[in-house]
Design a protein around this nucleic acid. Structure first.
Lengths: 145, 145
DNA sequence: TTTTAATAGGAGTATATACACCTATATATT
DNA sequence: AATATATAGGTGTATATACTCCTATTAAAA
């Protein structure tokens, strides 16, 4: 049980989750004025790029459980930032960004940039780039099985 | 709005949260047989090393909101894995690992090692080490303000 | 063509997370 | 000592997350 101390420094899960809480705080602080959570901002961005897109496809890209995505999308739909309607294949549901959603994103972008710059300056551009690459690797690693 | 695509690759918040979901899945998969979530495992570990420890102190170390910690601790207390009792300073509440909690940790450790090894092999020991260091840097960066 | 498989998605439930607002206790100020 | 302030902690509420089990629809097999 003497390992416990090391694990606090070496456990990938612990460290990544802790970092997620920490970095989320930075971004949500700046996004609060427009009432967007970190996940919501990411979802709107993804929808902007991929939409119209099905729930399953979006969940794959976000590495998010399909049912988690459903709940998250419902909130955005209620606020009129996206639309969700049945696709040609009537099993599928297509998610699309609305004009209102686009407007919110336009307001969000400079705020996002504030947070991103703070992280960039804090870590250094080089190091941040490296970090993001390594995280991508970790993500695809987890996808494999 | 053409920036949207890049942001998917460069947003630190998005990437770290996504990685957290991905890596959590790996660890929770192996921990499921003993009924521990990733956060619960980390909390037990932290309590093992730091306990008896106050809620505020534990929250600082975990970079977790105090109230979040309260809810998480309640679950562990209900299961008899920790005890929470009023300290000398009667505002404080001291968290301590129980014998039962220690036993669960003993069972959890080899399972945790499975997951950790999978990540270590996937990324390479060197790269993982680097990644964890960079995440530590990001965490302390977020702590500063 | 009927039956069976696979796929897309939702609802129930439980945990994780944090903000706003509250109480209790200890410390500092006067 | 009485009051004010700071600190520790909890509750209400809302979002985030994912597992299990369910239905609907499409595609495949017989």
């Amino acid at each position: 049980m003497e390992k416990c101390k090391e694990i606090g420094q070496t456990c990938a899960c612990y460290k990544v989750r802790k970092a997620a809480r920490a970095v989320t705080k930075i971004y949500e602080e700046v996004l609060r004025p427009i009432g967007l959570r970190a996940t919501q901002f990411s979802l709107l961005m993804a929808t902007r790029v991929m939409g119209p897109v099905t729930v399953v496809k979006l969940a794959q890209v976000m590495v998010m459980d399909r049912t988690t995505l459903t709940r998250n999308l419902q909130l955005l739909e209620t606020r009129g930032l996206i639309t969700i309607k049945t696709g040609e294949d009537r099993r599928e549901r297509e998610v699309t960004l609305t004009t209102s959603g686009m407007e919110v994103l336009t307001k969000a972008l400079p705020l996002w940039e504030e947070a991103q710059n703070r992280v960039k300056k804090g870590l250094g551009e080089e190091r941040l780039h490296n970090l993001l690459d390594d995280l991508s690797e970790m993500i695809s690693l987890a996808r494999k099985k």
